[in-house]
Computed example of a mutant assay.
Amino acid sequence: MQEFAFGLWRIWKNRNDVVFKGSHCQPNEILTVWRKNIGEYREAMNHGSLDEGAVRPLKSPLMMPALWEKPQFGTFKLNTDASWCSASFRAGAGWVIRDFAGILHAAGGSGTSTFHCAAAAEAHAIRTGLQYCTEYGFENVFVEADAKTVILMINKGTAPNCSFECILGDIEVLARRLTSVTFGFVPRERNRAAYSVAKFVFKEGKDFVWDHVGPEFLFNVLAQDYVPVSLSFHITCSVSQLQTAAAKAVNDRVFERNEICLGLPSKGSMAADTLDLLKDCQLPVKHVNPGQYVAQIPQLAFLGVDIEI
């Protein structure tokens, strides 16, 4: 699969050189560059050199950074985070509320408070988010924060820090006002939305509250959170198959393809140039019946070829 992907990319690059630069390369030159690109890629992926001609498959599917996880139906997830400066003791507390569909309902933060330690600032962020939940009717809440020690204190997993025990007491009182509330730890990489809000309010030194629209910087972070966590896929150039695969990826998150299909234009100068380019690369397209939209490349028996209308 790696060889095929790099082969398509090298063919496309060579085609661009011919069209835009008037530069023509011999098939042997293209193959040399192709082998070099594959070798460099595998060396980077495996953090070491490979023997010439060796083939090593990827050890795992393409992994995206760990992302935010949606709560259960009927539950709102409150993510909180804090940004704290040890020199000035100034803190920025941020929070974000999303529902089971991942839709933003509110976000905000405070950049005007000071605390003697980062843990106190983290606890203040949780308190601020819970205050908004109680005031605006978010009854079933799952609170996530990347301050593990603070979460343990709230869940009675460790003794509270007496220096900000009053904040922990406020959190307990606010939690009792809700129908249900759960506190959980989440790594920083899955708490990016609240982290971005905390940084913003810290920088501005003001208090902010946004509705479901939210600020532009937060919109970009929320959009990234909707990308599937893990994708395992093969390459296809058929538009209809891409659409089907994309829909399946959304539902199943992980999908695999056993067939590879290359879509080629059927008319005009683009069709002729494409066929000529493949022929120059010793990959001639065999299209026996012009009335059909299926062809073959004999050198690549595993590849299906669709002639697109």
Rank of each mutant, 00 (worst) to 15 (best):
Asn37Met: 04
Gly22Ser: 07
Arg192Val: 00
Asn28Trp: 04
Ile103Tyr: 10
Val18Ile: 12
Cys237Val: 03
His287Lys: 03
Asn161His: 12
Ala301Asp: 12
Gly129Phe: 06
Val96Ile: 01
Ala147Leu: 06
Glu69Tyr: 08
Arg176Ile: 00
Pro290Met: 03
Ala295Cys: 06
Phe6Ser: 04
Asp280Gln: 09
Arg127Tyr: 05
Ala245Gln: 10
Gly74Val: 03
Gly74Phe: 10
His24Glu: 11
Val288Ser: 09
Ala159Gly: 09
Met45Thr: 05
Ile11Val: 00
His212Thr: 02
Gly39Ile: 01
Ser269Val: 01
Ala271Asn: 10
Phe6Glu: 04
Tyr293Cys: 07
Tyr41Ala: 06
Ser23Tyr: 07
His124Gln: 11
Ala93Val: 14
Ala223Asp: 11
Phe219Tyr: 10
Asn46Met: 10
Phe200Val: 00
Leu168Gln: 14
Gln241Met: 13
Leu222Trp: 05
Asp211Val: 02
Thr179Gln: 13
Arg98Val: 01
Trp84Thr: 00
Ala245Met: 02
Leu278Pro: 14
Arg15Met: 05
Phe89Ser: 15
Leu8Gln: 15
Glu122Ala: 04
Met63Lys: 14
Val254Tyr: 12
Leu242Ile: 03
Ser60Ala: 10
Ser269Arg: 03
Tyr293Met: 12
Ala44Cys: 12
Gly157Phe: 04
Gly263His: 03
Lys36Met: 05
Leu152Val: 03
Lys59Gly: 15
Ser88Lys: 09
Ala249Ser: 15
Ser60Phe: 08
Leu152Ile: 03
His105Val: 00
Gly214Ser: 11
Ser113Ile: 00
Phe20Lys: 05
Asp81Met: 10
Pro298Tyr: 00
Glu40Met: 08
Gln26Tyr: 13
Met64Gly: 04
Gly137Glu: 13
Val18Phe: 11
Gln296Cys: 09
Lys36Val: 01
Phe142Ser: 10
Lys203Gly: 07
Ser110Pro: 02
Thr32Glu: 09
Val227Met: 05
Leu152Asn: 09
Leu178Arg: 06
Phe233Leu: 14
Leu303Val: 02
Phe219Cys: 14
Gly109Met: 12
Lys148Met: 09
Glu3Thr: 02
Cys162Trp: 09
Phe20Ile: 03
Ala272Thr: 07
Phe255Tyr: 01
Val96Arg: 03
Thr80Glu: 10
Ile126Gln: 09
Arg253Lys: 14
Leu231Trp: 09
Asn251Trp: 11
Cys25Ser: 07
